[in-house]
C-alpha cells in the first residue's frame, strides 16, 4: 500500500521536471550497462556451437555467430552417459535436502532465540555471534570432516553449512515481528511451543521462510569449493565442480566417456567450455525472473533489520 502511494507521488514529482539531456544520458547508459550484463552470455551461446573444423579454420575464438553450428558439445554434455546428469542430480539433491535442513535448523533455533523472555538468551546469542567473528579455518575444518567421517560423502555439502548465523538472526527478527498475542492464545489453549512453531509460526512466516530458503538455495546452487576439496569421488561432484573442471581447466576427464570414446575429434575446448556454461546456467536464467523479487524483498528486510 505504502509503496503504491510512494510511486504515485514520485510520478507527480516527475511531471514537475522537464526532460533534459540528463534523462537521455541516463536512459542510454542504463541500456548500455544492461547490455554488458547480457552480451557475455550471448557470446557463450554462440561459441558453444563452434565445431572442430570451424575452430581450425577460423582459429580458436569466441564468436556470436558460428558459421556452421555444431551441436557436438551438447551431445557430449546432454547425451546418454553424460556426467552432467549425475552432477545435476547431486546439485538438486543438495539443494532440496540442504535447504530443507537449513530451514529446519535455522527456523527452530531462530524461533527459540526470538523469545525475549528466554533466560540465557544473551549467552546463546553470543555463542552464535562469535562464530561470525572467528572461525577455525580451512585445515581444522578439513580434518574435522575427516574425523566425523563426512568427507567424501554427500553430507559434507550439507552439514557444515546448516546454519548461516546472519540469516538466522534475520529470521529471528522476522519472528519477533509476530504479535505475541497470537502465540499466547495458543499457549492458553494448551498447545506446546513446538506445535505452535510448526502449526502457527511457520505458516504465518511463510514469506520469510521462502526468502531465507531462497538465500540458502542459491548458496547451495553456486557452491563448488567445499565439494572440490572435500569430495574425491567424481560421482558425488555437483554440477558446479564439473563446470569448474571443464570451464577453467579444460578437463574433460569422465565427462561423458560413452560418447567421447566414440568420436574422432574432441570438440574445441572453447566450445565445450561455452556449452558447459550454457548447460549449467540455463536453469537459473529460466527461473530467475520469477523469483528475483523475493530476493529483493528479503534483501531489503534483512539489511534494514539485520
Amino acid at each position: 500500500m505504502e509503496q503504491k502511494t510512494l510511486i504515485s507521488s514520485r510520478r507527480k514529482k516527475w511531471r514537475v521536471d522537464r526532460i533534459t539531456w540528463f534523462d537521455y544520458f541516463n536512459v542510454i547508459s542504463a541500456a548500455l550497462l544492461s547490455f554488458t550484463f547480457i552480451i557475455p552470455f550471448l557470446i557463450v551461446i554462440g561459441s558453444s556451437l563452434l565445431g572442430y573444423e570451424e575452430s581450425v579454420s577460423r582459429g580458436s575464438i569466441y564468436v556470436l555467430f558460428p558459421q556452421s553450428p555444431d551441436f557436438i558439445c551438447y551431445k557430449i554434455l546432454l547425451g546418454h552417459g553424460s556426467a552432467v546428469y549425475r552432477g545435476y542430480l547431486i546439485t538438486i539433491l543438495r539443494l532440496v535436502i540442504g535447504t530443507t535442513l537449513n530451514l529446519l535448523f535455522t527456523g527452530t533455533m531462530a524461533y527459540g532465540l526470538s523469545k525475549r523472555s528466554l533466560p540465557g538468551k544473551g549467552i546463546l546469542t553470543t555463542i552464535v555471534f562469535f562464530t561470525m567473528l572467528f572461525s577455525g579455518g580451512l585445515i581444522p575444518s578439513f580434518l574435522l570432516y575427516q574425523l566425523l567421517g563426512i568427507s567424501n560423502t554427500f553430507w559434507v555439502m550439507i552439514l557444515p553449512v546448516l546454519i548461516n548465523p546472519w540469516w538466522m538472526f534475520i529470521m529471528r527478527n522476522f519472528f519477533r515481528e509476530i504479535p505475541d498475542s497470537i502465540e499466547e492464545s495458543a499457549l492458553i489453549d494448551g498447545a506446546s511451543p513446538l506445535r505452535i512453531f510448526f502449526s502457527i509460526i511457520v505458516p504465518l512466516s511463510a514469506a520469510s521462510f521462502a526468502t531465507i530458503g531462497m538465500f540458502y538455495a542459491v548458496m547451495h546452487w553456486n557452491s563448488w569449493f567445499d565439494a572440490a576439496i572435500h569430495i574425491t569421488n567424481p560421482k558425488l561432484q555437483p554440477v558446479q565442480v564439473l563446470m569448474r573442471n571443464v570451464v577453467l581447466t579444460a578437463t574433460s576427464t569422465d565427462l561423458n566417456n560413452e560418447i567421447m570414446a566414440g568420436i574422432a575429434k574432441k570438440p574445441p575446448s572453447n566450445a565445450l567450455k561455452s556449452a558447459m556454461i550454457v548447460v549449467s546456467t540455463l536453469p537459473i536464467l529460466v527461473v530467475y525472473p520469477f523469483i528475483q523479487k523475493y530476493f529483493v524483498k528479503g534483501m531489503v528486510v534483512g539489511s534494514i533489520k539485520g
Partner: peptide, 21 residues
C-alpha cells in the same frame, strides 16, 4: 529444545574447528 539442535550444530561445526587451531 528448539534451540538445542542448532546449538549442537554450532558446537560441532563451528567450535570444534576452533579447537583445531
Amino acid at each position: 529444545l528448539l534451540i538445542l539442535p542448532g546449538l549442537i550444530w554450532f558446537i560441532i561445526f563451528r567450535y570444534l574447528p576452533m579447537y583445531g587451531v
